[in-house]
């Protein structure tokens, strides 16, 4: 009995109260958008654009207002998503290396556990690198996943150098012909300069050993995060050239709106979403399905 109210339902509720366009209308619109976590800047942008339409007399009735909102959102979403690849970038030959980064507790280790199972099922030879040597029990946690998934793992000593684990793992992946290597890193807040440098160092080691690697740097974002998600995306992108997002814990919120904000402001595609703690609670992200889902339930529109 998970109760969730989607964006469509919120927009419907908002429109049901619609009388005419005045200042309160814009306040309420902004509230509705922010409630959906589309992000502050997105909410302001949408509301400003709607103000323009109203000035041009293009949106006066409920139906017109509704159409403009949806149109603008789809536009923003499409414009932001141009040229992006939803699939994971795989190596042409040799091991594909996927590095996971993100703040503390976002779901990096769990996502690796789920994704490794996915690739294993496809018959791939999978290796995990436990390069979080810092957090208590982090290596043990990844090891539980490795055993569950039936895949191999490279670990290092507690509080050891994470870069050394990365090096050992990439060597092993090359030598023993693994198809895919997942690198788990310790959670870190994006404003910790030294920790961000450490991450960049791990990435450089991968590139030194395999020139195309890492083939993906996935930023794991907790879907319940607010505005800080944008700071995270921005600063992790700066230090490690993030190539895509995994949005976790979407089972806890219907506010996937942050996807819009991230695409719009940072041009990072969401590649997977996490929907729970179990191994199969990982789904590929389909952008058009998502947009469709957002507006699903808008029965009295169109």
């Amino acid at each position: 009995a998970k109760s969730r109210t989607g964006f469509g339902a919120r927009l419907n509720r908002f429109l049901a109260n619609f009388r005419h366009v005045d200042e309160d209308f814009f306040d309420d619109l902004e509230d509705m958008l922010i409630e959906s976590d589309v992000g502050y800047d997105m909410a302001m942008k949408l509301s400003d654009e709607l103000r323009e339409e109203v000035k041009l007399e293009n949106a006066k009735s409920k139906q017109e207002v509704s159409n403009v909102i949806i149109e603008k959102m789809v536009d923003l979403y499409d414009a932001a998503g141009k040229d992006e690849k939803a699939d994971l970038n795989m190596a042409a030959t040799g091991p594909t290396v996927i590095m996971f980064v993100g703040v503390n507790g976002a779901g990096k280790t769990t996502t690796i556990g789920k994704m490794a199972a996915l690739f294993k099922k496809q018959g791939k030879k999978v290796l995990l690198a436990a390069a979080d040597t810092f957090r208590a029990g982090a290596t043990e946690q990844l090891d539980v996943w490795a055993k569950r998934d039936g895949v191999d793992i490279v670990t290092g000593p507690e509080n050891g150098d994470p870069a050394a684990v990365v090096f050992d793992a990439v060597q092993k992946a090359k030598k023993e012909d693994y198809d895919i290597l997942f690198v788990d890193t310790a959670g870190r807040l994006q404003n910790k300069v030294n920790l961000m440098k450490e991450l960049a160092k791990m990435k450089r080691i991968l590139t030194r050993e395999i020139p195309d690697a890492p083939h993906e740097v996935l930023l794991v974002l907790d879907a319940t995060t607010g505005q800080n998600a944008l700071n995270q995306a921005k600063l992790f992108k700066q230090s490690t050239d993030v190539t895509g997002i995994v949005l976790t814990k979407l089972d806890g919120t219907a506010r996937g709106g942050i996807v819009l904000a991230i695409r719009n402001e940072l041009h990072l595609p969401v590649k997977y979403v996490g929907l729970g703690e179990h191994v199969d609670d990982l789904q590929k992200f389909d952008a058009s399905d998502f947009v469709y889902g957002l507006f699903k339930g808008l029965v009295d529109v169109d």
Partner: peptide, 12 residues
């Protein structure tokens, strides 16, 4: 509670 939580904090 994680201080980075967004609008969801009230529900939680």
């Amino acid at each position: 509670i994680d201080a980075m939580t967004g609008q969801n904090a009230v529900n939680t």
